[in-house]
């Protein structure tokens, strides 16, 4: 268990070292990813300029949802966002090289092309989280602290599973990358708002079937001590880690099946 993590650190560390050689360019990218993702929070503020509440949700509560989803998503993006370039790896046949090495193929894809600049996105989420927590005056219990600590990694695993499943599409067509965006970037956009605003068919699809509702909506209800406007069972608020494990298992199975379908480029 430990050895792959050490290897991951070694592989990623080497890439980070070479990225930090170009300091100005790195800082520009960091700032850029901060700025662009921050627009989404400006949108939240614009909405609440017009209404005091969105359904039963105040701006502070939505800020908390926004921050938690953004942080989970940004960390996922940092860890495996380079899966967006996976179709390119398939197209030019460079995936072959990973397959002749004695390590899991997904592990190797994830450990290559790491981009530290994506950290900018997470910084923006942390900033909003600080604002939300400062404004909300939550009553902190052991349970709530534990929830906050557990829900972020669970959210990362859920987003990551969705991303991996989306990336598998590249084994069939290398032009469909944007399809995956609907669930990754789209999933983040969705999870930044309380899911009771969406129509029930969309919720069933994007919050339960694709379990993005478990990234932050349900855990946040518990953090806020809020009554679920959808009236769903309370145990769902604690289900995120379980959902994450299931999602990861499904993603791993699909990946393994898809690799067997790999056709490789160039005769």
């Amino acid at each position: 268990m430990v050895e792959p993590v050490l290897l991951w650190r070694r592989l990623v560390g080497a890439q980070v070292r070479s990225q930090l050689q170009y300091r100005t360019s790195f800082l520009l990218d960091l700032f850029g990813s901060f700025l662009i993702s921050f627009i989404d929070f400006l949108a939240v503020l614009v909405i609440f300029h017009n209404v005091p509440q969105l359904g039963v949700w105040s701006v502070r509560e939505v800020a908390l949802l926004y921050a938690l989803s953004s942080i989970s998503f940004a960390l996922t993006d940092l860890l495996i966002g380079h899966l967006d370039q996976f179709p390119q790896k398939i197209r030019d046949g460079n995936f072959d090289i990973l397959l002749v090495r004695p390590r899991g193929s997904l592990f190797q894809v994830v450990a290559s092309d790491f981009q530290l600049r994506r950290l900018g996105k997470a910084m923006q989420g942390v900033l909003v989280l600080v604002y939300a927590l400062a404004a909300l005056h939550l009553h902190w219990t052991v349970g709530r602290v534990a929830m906050l600590v557990v829900m972020i990694p669970a959210g990362v695993v859920i987003f990551a599973s969705v991303w991996v499943i989306g990336a598998c599409l590249a084994f069939w067509t290398t032009d469909g990358g944007e399809f995956t965006n609907a669930f990754t970037y789209g999933g983040n956009f969705m999870a930044q708002y309380p899911i009771d605003v969406y129509a029930s068919w969309l919720r069933r699809f994007l919050c339960y079937l694709v379990p993005l509702g478990f990234v932050c909506y349900f855990p946040a209800l518990y953090l806020l001590g809020k009554h679920d406007p959808l009236g769903l069972p309370r145990f769902l608020q604690f289900a995120s880690p379980v959902v994450a494990v299931i999602a990861a298992a499904v993603a791993g199975t699909i990946w393994r099946g898809a690799v067997r379908h790999y056709r490789s480029a160039g005769g």
């Binding site: 909405i47 969105l54 609907a182 789209g186 956009f189 708002y193 969406y198 129509a199 969309l202 994007l206």
Partner: peptide
């Protein structure tokens, strides 16, 4: 998908 999300929001 983005259209639906934004429309409902």
């Amino acid at each position: 998908i983005f259209g639906f999300l934004q429309a409902y929001i």
